[in-house]
Computed example of a mutant assay.
Amino acid sequence: MSEQDTPQRHVVVVFDGHEAGARTYAEWLAEETGGAIGTVDEAADPVGPLSGDLLVADTVIVVTALGADGALGGATFVLDNWDYLQDFGRRVAIAVVGMSQVFDYDRLRAIEKTIDAEKMTQLKFFQLRGKLDTASLGMRDKIALRAQVAALKARPKRTPEEQAMLDNGGNFDFTHRKSLRPLLRWVREES
């Protein structure tokens, strides 16, 4: 199918403004799709900058992080606006930004604490690797990260990513534009 044959999608990309990796991916998605972009708070505002775009959107992508407590930051926007997002056959995807590049059973169970199983079947989920800047962490998270770095230093064999994390003082950036390919295929209905 050529690009001329591909129907133009009206895409809105919403991101959790507290997660640096989410912002990066959201910006790339907006560039790739020509979609509107804004934070979860902007999208939730009925007269905010995204209100007109959300009205005509046929595809909504929420880019968010999975918290240590299992909370999915942008899920509140999806749940609070569930009926509206389901109107007119809108397609909704949640791109979860985190350390791992794949979903595992524990992560899915944590998400089910936020979004019930029935609604999960109506959403499309993608996993994207994120980034971490230790300067943005709270004291408790910094202590946990120091313990993780100490454990990594003690290991005789490390992956290149683990070594890069040590070399950068615990900071890392695993964001990569190419990892958006499956999500972009879904947006373009190629998958």
Score class of each variant (00 low, 15 high):
Ala164His: 01
Glu162Cys: 07
Glu118Gln: 09
Gly70Asn: 11
Ala71Lys: 15
Ala57Trp: 01
Leu66Gln: 13
Gly89Gln: 12
Arg23Asp: 12
Gly38Asp: 04
Asp5Phe: 14
Glu189Asp: 06
Lys113Ser: 14
Asp87Asn: 09
Val187Tyr: 01
Thr59Ala: 10
Leu72Gln: 12
Met1Leu: 09
Ala44Tyr: 01
Ile111Asn: 12
Lys119Asp: 05
Val63Asn: 05
Gly98Leu: 08
Leu166Glu: 04
Arg158Thr: 03
Phe126Val: 07
Gly170Tyr: 02
Glu112Asn: 13
Gln148Val: 08
Asp141Cys: 03
Leu184Glu: 03
Gly35Asp: 04
Trp28Gly: 07
Asp16Ile: 09
Glu189Ile: 11
Ala30Gln: 02
Gly70Phe: 05
Ala147Gln: 15
Ala36Cys: 01
Arg129Ser: 09
Phe174Gly: 00
Ala147Arg: 13
Ile37Arg: 07
Ala20Asn: 14
Gln8Gly: 00
Arg140Val: 15
Lys153Asp: 08
Asp80Asn: 02
Asp83Leu: 10
Ile61Ser: 02
Arg158Val: 12
Ala44Cys: 01
Gly21Trp: 05
Tyr25Trp: 11
Lys124Thr: 10
Arg9Glu: 04
Phe174Tyr: 11
Phe126Ser: 07
Lys124Tyr: 01
Ala44Lys: 02
Lys113Thr: 14
Ile143Met: 15
Ala154Trp: 00
Ser191Phe: 00
Arg158His: 09
Val102Asp: 15
Val11His: 00
Trp28Ala: 10
Val92Lys: 03
Leu145Asp: 02
Arg181Val: 11
Val187His: 00
Val149Arg: 10
Arg185His: 06
Gln86Asn: 02
Tyr84Arg: 14
Val97Trp: 12
Phe15His: 13
Glu189Lys: 13
Arg146Phe: 11
Pro46Met: 04
Ser2Phe: 08
Ala36His: 05
Arg107Ala: 15
Gly89Thr: 15
Ala26Leu: 07
Glu161Trp: 05
Val187Pro: 08
Phe15Gly: 04
Met165Asn: 03
Gly89Phe: 08
Ile143Gly: 09
Asp41Met: 12
Ala93Trp: 06
Val12Leu: 00
Gly170Ser: 03
Ala20Lys: 14
Asn171His: 14
Ile111Ala: 05
Gly21Asp: 00
Val149Ala: 07
Lys157Arg: 15
Ile94Phe: 07
Glu27Tyr: 04
Ala30Gly: 08
Lys153Tyr: 03
Pro7Val: 04
Asn171Thr: 05
Ala117Lys: 08
Thr175Lys: 14
Arg158Gln: 12
Leu66Ser: 00
Leu72His: 12
Ala26Cys: 00
Asp80Thr: 05
Asp133Phe: 07
Trp28Ile: 05
Glu19Ile: 15
Asp106His: 09
Thr114Gln: 10
Leu72Tyr: 14
His10Arg: 13
Leu50Ser: 04
Ala151Glu: 01
Gly35Ala: 04
Leu132Met: 13
Leu152Cys: 03
Glu112Gly: 06
Leu85Lys: 01
Arg181Tyr: 02
Val102His: 11
Arg177Val: 06
Phe172Tyr: 11
His176Gln: 14
Tyr25Val: 09
Val78Cys: 02
Glu190Val: 07
Ser2Asp: 13
Met120Gly: 04
Lys142Cys: 14
Gly89Pro: 14
Ala150Lys: 13
Glu118Pro: 00
Ala75Ser: 15
Gly130Ser: 09
